[in-house]
Simulated assay, not measured.
Amino acid sequence: MVGGVWGAAVDLLLGGGCAGCGVPGVTLCDGCRGLLSRMAPFRAWPDPPPHGLAPPTAAAPYGDQIRQLVIAHKENARYPLARPLGAALATAVRAALGEYRGVWLVPVPSAPATVRQRGHDPLRRISRAAARALRAHGIDARIAPALRLVRRPDDQAGLSAERRTANLAGAFGLRSRWAEPLTDQPIIVVDDVITTGSTLAEACRALESRGIPVLGCAVVAATVRRLPSGS
């Protein structure tokens, strides 16, 4: 609470505004916070789904305020947004888990150069917040930074679904020390946004190629144009 009050005070002094809608004085206004908390998780299969993608669940469509919140946290380092975005991710994880009361969250890895450029690892930050939210609901959630970048793929912007899949093939590998702890455990691969699903599918491949089945994937948001009808 103190951190939230301090963040709001700093935003007000520096002329900041809500990262979602721009209302002045707060990092996240009540309206945008409520928008995040009211979203109902849904199955977010891309169309077409890439081979090897475990069932994906999203907390919200990726558009309007949600998009602004994700970008503000990721690219503008507005750290207080990690907690509400993590809570949204936790709702998607809970829906993906079903009856399981424990889970390992495996974040999609970022390139070290990208993390240095941004000054933080946004997905790791959101994942930690999600794990705390899950534990508050009685779910034994732990973070497993089990994947690493074996090679850096080309920029994905503007690539078709097929080219994204080819671009990411073999990009991730399993850190060997995680092979035993993750064996026979409920695994959810997490990311902030799903578009074509190629990144998540590659993460699933890296785990399953080492004998670690993936229960599902969970994201904060799914790109609207990729949402299947009737899902």
Rank of each mutant, 00 (worst) to 15 (best):
A60P: 00
P61F: 11
P61D: 02
P61L: 14
Y62S: 06
G63D: 15
G63Y: 10
G63E: 15
Q65N: 11
Q65K: 12
I66L: 09
R67W: 13
R67F: 02
Q68P: 00
Q68D: 13
L69C: 05
V70I: 13
I71L: 08
A72F: 15
H73T: 05
H73R: 10
K74F: 04
E75M: 05
E75L: 06
E75P: 00
E75D: 12
E75G: 06
N76C: 13
A77K: 15
A77N: 08
R78Q: 14
Y79P: 01
P80Y: 04
L81M: 04
A82Q: 12
R83N: 03
P84Y: 15
L85P: 04
L85M: 01
L85F: 13
A87K: 14
A88W: 14
L89I: 06
L89R: 03
A90Q: 10
T91R: 15
T91G: 01
T91E: 07
A92W: 04
V93W: 04
V93S: 06
R94G: 06
R94M: 10
R94T: 08
R94H: 13
A95H: 14
A96D: 03
L97V: 02
G98T: 09
Y100G: 02
R101W: 11
G102P: 00
V103K: 02
V103H: 01
W104T: 08
W104L: 02
W104S: 05
L105P: 07
P107K: 06
V108Q: 03
P109K: 11
P109Q: 04
P112M: 07
T114A: 14
T114G: 05
V115A: 03
V115M: 00
R116H: 07
R116T: 01
R116G: 01
R116F: 11
Q117V: 09
R118Y: 09
G119Y: 05
G119H: 11
H120G: 04
H120M: 05
H120K: 11
H120A: 02
D121L: 00
P122M: 05
L123M: 03
R125K: 08
S127E: 06
S127P: 07
S127R: 01
R132D: 07
R132H: 09
A133D: 08
A133P: 06
A133L: 08
R135W: 07
A136E: 12
H137M: 10
G138Q: 10
G138F: 13
G138S: 10
G138L: 08
D140H: 10
I143R: 03
A144L: 02
A146K: 11
L147F: 13
R148P: 02
R148L: 00
L149K: 09
L149G: 05
L149Q: 10
V150W: 05
V150Q: 04
R152M: 09
D154H: 15
D154L: 15
A157Y: 14
G158T: 09
L159R: 11
E162P: 00
R163P: 02
R164V: 06
T165C: 10
T165W: 12
A166F: 11
A166R: 15
N167M: 00
L168M: 12
A169R: 15
G170W: 05
G170H: 10
F172C: 02
G173N: 06
L174A: 00
L174H: 06
L174K: 11
S176I: 13
W178D: 01
W178L: 03
A179C: 03
A179P: 01
L182Q: 03
T183R: 15
T183N: 07
